[in-house]
Design a protein around this nucleic acid. Structure first.
Lengths: 218, 218
DNA sequence: GTCAAGTATGTTGTATACAAGGTGTGACGT
DNA sequence: ACGTCACACCTTGTATACAACATACTTGAC
């Protein structure tokens, strides 16, 4: 099944890092992990390189690889960039989106509403993701779509955390309506602005969450 | 000297791919390149992975790695994203830039002017790069700075090509002036717009260049 | 007693040997 | 003559062996 074990290892390690299996500055021992996965060091090192390029671990020559959870400031920076990328997607999509995609978007938004009514946070998470991914796609720029999706995935675990805050889902839905309106009207600037603030508010919520957890770090 | 030969190989291969040493769909033979670099396949494969993650080559399991020059549409997409990223940097920099950095920017622009007066395209290229990198830095968002720089580097060879077009350097300088004005005034939207069009015009020029070379592709 | 230097041990980086899969060619059958 | 199946060779993916470097501990000298 797994033609390339290195890829599978990379994915597994990525999940485990996300799930907090490893502490922040922890060194990933090649031989220990190799025997844990039942493979040799070779595919493991390949997996390490992928993770290093993704920014999840840091490779220091002749020293080893260390898991590198992004700090508070870096996370805020990433959320800021995410907001801007989505804004760009929105601006482009406003003038490029097809009628079919608009209908698709409306449908996705309706499903979001349903999950909010059902207070199903997990389901909302997935439907919301679909809503945004349609916008990425309708930017009409595959490269932009890929880059935005990549950052989106990288922020996944942190985005998920802030969703549990009180009333966030309802607020999010009204923002979705505004976004839909702007896109339907083909108003590029309004679409960009509404998407930017929609995502930026996620970053701020996350910031608050973070500050409430560790008041010393802020 | 070179602690990590794999890194050196990756850089060398990257240059050679840029310089057109390899044809577009060409397969990179591991053993042949290994003996050509005087190393074993191991560091070469590590180099391949880096290049694959950078998008310069494509790795097909059990088939090998193939050099993957971006096609016309992908290049246009990348230029579009580049324009938007620079616009974002500009918008943020307009409200975050320090007086010292503004002076630095003015100086860099002055050096650009000097190289234009001297008709030194190569020197202009470097000074122009410095001008833009200051703006990336002054966005006050290191993550954004890195991402923007990364795409900038990836577009380097193509940006260089369009610079040789008639009158491009003079036009570019007047655009720089507009950008400087907006940043000095702290006008975020004007900075964003001027930077966007400044870079977008590069993409268009490149598009023209491309169309004039291969009329069949467009 | 403390600091420094040397050695030993452990870990990373590289080379080579081995295994598994894919492709191409040739032969045989229709 | 053309198509299909089988075998051989070539290439990639993985394991293991080896070398270089870094770190830590011990020993000796001041």
């Amino acid at each position: 099944m797994e033609i390339r074990r290195a890829d599978h290892i990379a994915k597994t390690l990525e999940e485990q890092i996300f799930n907090g299996t490893f502490a922040n500055g922890e060194r990933l021992d090649e031989v220990r992990l190799a025997e844990r996965f039942g493979v040799s060091r070779t595919p493991l090192r390949e997996a390490f390189q992928k993770l290093a390029l993704s920014g999840l671990v840091e490779q220091i020559p002749r020293r080893g690889v260390f898991v590198r959870q992004p700090g508070p400031v870096e996370l805020i920076e990433m959320f800021e960039v995410m907001a801007e990328l989505e804004a760009v997607c929105g601006r482009l999509a406003a003038v490029r989106i097809s009628d079919a995609a608009l209908a698709e978007l409306r449908e996705a938004n309706a499903r979001c509403l349903a999950t909010v009514a059902a207070h199903d946070a997990d389901a909302y998470y997935w439907e919301n993701e679909r809503f945004h991914q349609i916008i990425y796609r309708e930017s009409g720029n595959s490269f932009l779509e890929q880059e935005t999706l990549s950052l989106h995935n990288r922020l996944k675990p942190f985005r998920r955390a802030q969703l549990r805050l009180r009333g966030r889902m309802d607020q999010s839905m009204t923002e979705h309506e505004e976004i839909m309106d702007a896109l339907s009207a083909g108003d590029a600037e309004r679409a960009a602005a509404s998407l930017r603030s929609h995502v930026a508010v996620q970053g701020e919520k996350f910031h608050h969450l973070l500050a409430s957890l560790k008041p010393s770090v802020a």
